[in-house]
Design a protein around this nucleic acid. Structure first.
Length: 568
RNA sequence: GCACCGUUAGCUCAGCUGGAUAGAGUGUUCGGCUACGAACCGAAAGGCCAGGGGUUCGAAUCCCUUACGGUGCACCA
């Protein structure tokens, strides 16, 4: 039983009419250390007893009496404050953590459930830029969090590898694709393909018929024209090669690359089903589903030329996934601008009679902009993700050269730290907020940053090396009752709930905030309390604490997708 | 026009389903390495929680409203 439950139990023995849940709900953490560790406010009882909350609180304290788990229980105005017995507390938390080790933050809530996380999803033949960092890293972390909690997870990269833009690319290539262009594309795929795309778009202004040619070629692609398909496959392959460089740097792996093209042959069935269920209406030659009565705008399912759209594909994809994976949750890590689109197709699935529509979750996030305005591929306002990572690694390498020139495998560590800084930074705030990309911020490594946490981790590693003892949990816990040790232990207690909240809300930043907080508490402890000391029992106790912090920091960083070098 | 999201310290942001004096980091000023790693730690200064109503014993938090900023509104994805 944990201490919070004990508080609830004691309270329950006085207030017998309440349920355990109700009491647990009421328990708070006081804003200040010297107000205790847990508190129950008594305002709510004022009406019932027709006494002031302060009087009630005092009465409750008297009735509860003394218990070994708590140093003292006292009233402070309308609050009943519980002060845990620090040695008991330390023993309870550290023994549990030592026993559970890397599983300390986990539970088994995911057992037997399959969860799909769709994330990253860049467009083929377009730059992989700073705008893609969000879906990529948030999704990766959510995937890891769910895996940690025992879910069977499937990471899907829903590549943007289909659509009219490919008609344009094929058409452009057929017009201007000499050997020189082929070589350029092989060497430098994305920028060269992008050049073709931009040029084509520009020439459409002068030659409007190019638009039709693009449509024609996309239609040919859909119809299985061999030449079109070959070109498409080539564009896709060379683009993926570039994307994979970035995924490798981040250490991200996908279970499936089934993107838009994968579902191209699964659309007619969707249309048929919608037709059967009488959900389709004709409108100006297109087929739509009317959604206005649900507070949404109508959704076009099929264009007047017979080709399909984004919504149609996402419906097909969701149905396919339900059939193939029988998911418990189907999570889409996609930007907030697509909220309406997501609501539309989810509503359509619901109208089709599938109650699992509610298991599809849109995990949205705010937009990234640049200092000189919105991101714009066409206007050249792009920051490539790869460049961001490279610069972060370079900067780290410089710092290492300056502070720790004798470090072994410097390049490896520079990568881990530089990229870790980028990941940490991205996952530090609430997803929904928009932000402006800034080099200064990305390349700052002091304070609440990835390197700070990694540094603290490296520090724990160093201590564990220097201590030269076997760590075990057979220590004198009364030696860990000073303020700094206790604060670290209290922080450690919160790991599991940090992971759970991150899980419930699809918000990795709860973990980011948690580990930076733990690092802060540990650093305070470190500065106040010498760890590797003569006195064996003190050393053993403090080393145990250090070891648990070491484990939790490492697991925390793993959940964010960061690496944790032992020296830096 | 309609809808959704945001607004908290100079800057970047936390603040859980309402609860005790609104917190970090950064920047500024000051202090700490012959120490277990200074990518660290400590101290000071800095706030009408965008404005206005309401609900409540109690509101940064819930509701309404205004302002400002962002996003989306059928044949792009």
């Amino acid at each position: 039983m944990d201490f919070k439950e004990k508080v609830a139990e004691l309270f329950l023995s006085i207030e017998k009419e309440m349920t355990m849940d109700e009491v647990v709900q009421m328990i708070e953490i006081p804003p200040n250390q010297d107000m205790g560790d847990y508190a129950v406010p008594c305002f709510k009882f004022a009406k019932k007893y027709r006494k002031s909350p302060a009087v009630i609180a005092a009465g409750i304290v008297e009735k509860i009496g003394r218990h070994e788990e708590f140093d003292k229980i006292e009233s402070a105005g309308p609050y009943v404050n519980f002060f845990v017995d620090k040695a008991h507390f330390a023993e309870k938390i550290l023994k549990q953590a030592f026993k559970e080790y890397k599983k300390y933050g986990s539970t088994n809530i995911g057992e037997g459930k399959t969860v799909i996380v769709e994330f990253s999803s860049p467009n083929i033949a377009k730059p992989f830029h700073i705008g893609h960092i969000r879906s990529t890293l948030i999704g990766n972390s959510i995937h890891k969090i769910y895996t940690y909690l025992g879910y069977n997870t499937i990471a899907i990269n829903h590549l943007g590898d289909y659509g009219t833009q490919f008609g344009m690319l094929i058409s452009a290539y057929k017009k201007w694709g000499n050997t020189e262009v082929v070589e350029a594309i092989e060497k430098n795929p994305i920028p060269e393909l992008l050049k073709l795309y931009v040029r084509y778009n520009k020439e459409i202004e002068t030659y409007p018929e190019y638009r039709d040619e693009a449509r024609y070629w996309f239609k040919e692609l859909e119809n299985g024209n061999e030449e079109a398909h070959k070109l498409w496959a080539w564009f896709r392959e060379v683009s993926l090669k570039e994307f994979n460089r970035v995924y490798d740097m981040f250490g991200i792996k996908f279970d499936s690359l089934a993107g838009e093209s994968f579902y191209s042959d699964k659309m007619p069935a969707v249309i048929d089903e919608l037709e059967d269920k009488q959900l389709l209406k004709d409108s100006e030659g297109a087929k739509i589903v009317e959604l206005q009565e649900y507070g949404l705008t109508d959704a076009v399912i099929q264009k007047s030329d017979g080709s399909t759209l984004y919504v149609t594909r996402d419906i097909a994809a969701a149905m396919y996934r339900k059939k193939s994976y029988d998911f418990y949750k189907n999570i889409y890590v996609v930007g907030a601008p697509q909220k309406l689109h997501f609501e539309q197709w989810r509503k359509i699935i619901e109208l089709m009679g599938y109650d699992w529509a509610n298991d599809c979750v849109h995990v949205m996030f705010g937009t990234v902009s640049l200092e000189d305005g919105a991101l714009s591929t066409r206007q050249g306002r792009v920051v490539f993700l790869e460049d961001v990572l490279k610069k972060a690694v370079e900067k780290t390498a410089e710092i290492i050269e300056e502070r720790n020139p004798n470090l072994e495998n410097k390049e490896e560590v520079a990568k881990q730290v530089g990229i870790g800084a980028v990941i940490f930074q991205e996952l530090f705030n609430n997803r929904i907020k928009d932000y402006m990309f800034s080099w200064d911020k990305t390349l700052s490594f002091e304070g609440e940053t990835g390197p700070y946490v990694q540094y603290t981790y490296a520090r724990t590693c160093s201590l564990l090396r220097k201590a030269e003892i076997e760590v075990d949990d057979n220590v004198d816990f009364s030696l860990l009752t000073d303020k700094e040790s206790f604060n670290v232990i209290k922080k450690l207690e919160g790991f599991k709930s940090a992971v759970l909240v991150a899980h419930d809300k699809y918000e990795p930043f709860y973990i980011t905030r948690y580990i930076v907080g733990l690092a802060q508490e540990f650093n305070r402890f470190y500065h106040e309390c010498p760890i590797v000391v003569e006195d064996e029992s003190i050393k053993k106790a403090r080393i145990l604490l250090t070891k648990i912090v070491n484990i939790v920091l490492k697991v925390g960083m793993e959940l964010l997708g960061m690496e944790s070098p032992e020296k830096m």
